[in-house]
Computed example of a mutant assay.
Amino acid sequence: MPPVPGSGLAKGLAVTLRTMTRKSVTEQYPDVQPDLAPRTRGVIGLFEENCTVCMLCARECPDWCIYIDSHKETVPAAAPGGRERSRNVLDRFAIDFSLCMYCGICIEVCPFDALFWSPEFEYAETDIRELTHERDKLREWMWTVPAPPALDPAAEEPKELGAARKTADKLAAEAAQAAEAAEQQAAEQQDTKAEGDA
């Protein structure tokens, strides 16, 4: 059966009338702050202590908007006769948010959990050159990162924790056996000494 002429127009007008009768959902920002989801992707926060200057985030960034500068320092030997080590020291860590496309690749590839999503979103500037934020600003945003969700109590235990627990239990059992053997040996020595004195 062919469609009735004008039925599409009638359907469109019906949608328009339904929408006109609904209450407006306009948010009064900035007078009223928006109600954001707890894990909203706003900006990237830097936890500087975890950064080892491996440059993985800068290499993987498709926009090349992460700038890292570092230098090497020599660390003295931890034990006498040991050798000196060298380590990277972070001098500059900056992200140009005028180039960033918020893909999150840098956060995903960071092997040391130094980068996190912060829900902060109010960082507009009047000059595009001021959208390059240095490590002090990135560190400020780090403190607004929400805590991770709690683990599901019904979830299966991670294999790493199970293996670590087995190793710890084995070491504790060996230590208990060694302590018991030491007590037994001390008791035998006291018995032998008592027999010798008698």
Score class of each variant (00 low, 15 high):
Asp127Tyr: 01
Phe121Ile: 09
Cys110Trp: 00
Ala114Tyr: 00
Thr74Ala: 14
Leu90Glu: 09
Asn88Trp: 10
Lys72Leu: 13
Phe116Ile: 03
Ala78Leu: 13
Trp117Tyr: 08
Glu84Pro: 15
Cys100Asp: 04
Leu115Cys: 04
Val75Asn: 07
Phe112Arg: 07
Ala114Gly: 09
Asp69Trp: 06
Ile95Lys: 00
Tyr123Leu: 13
Leu115Asn: 09
Cys100Leu: 02
Pro76Gln: 11
Ala124Pro: 02
Ser86Gly: 10
Ile68Glu: 01
Cys110Gln: 02
Ser118Asp: 01
Cys110Met: 01
Glu125Asn: 12
Pro76Asp: 04
Gly81Pro: 01
Val75Pro: 12
Lys72Arg: 14
Ala114Val: 01
Arg85Thr: 15
Leu115Gln: 00
Asp113Cys: 11
Thr126Asn: 13
Ser86Glu: 15
Arg92Phe: 08
Thr74Lys: 06
Asp69Val: 11
Phe97Tyr: 13
Thr126Phe: 15
Phe112His: 11
Ile107Pro: 00
Arg92Tyr: 07
Trp117Ile: 01
Gly81Trp: 03
Phe116Asp: 14
Ala94Ile: 03
His71Arg: 08
Glu108Cys: 02
Ala79Lys: 14
Cys106Lys: 04
Glu122Asp: 15
Val75Tyr: 00
Arg83Val: 14
Glu125Gln: 12
Glu73Met: 09
Asp96Gln: 10
Asp91Gln: 01
Arg129Tyr: 15
Ala124Cys: 15
Phe97Lys: 00
Ser98Val: 02
Ser98Asn: 12
Tyr102Cys: 05
Ile68Asn: 00
Ile128Met: 09
Lys72Thr: 12
Ser70His: 15
Thr126Trp: 11
Ile95Ala: 06
Met101Thr: 15
Glu73Phe: 11
Pro111Val: 00
Glu84Ala: 15
Glu73Gln: 10
Tyr102Val: 05
Asp127Phe: 07
Pro80Trp: 05
Phe97Cys: 05
Glu120Val: 11
Pro111Asp: 09
Cys103Asp: 13
Gly81Arg: 14
Ile95Asn: 06
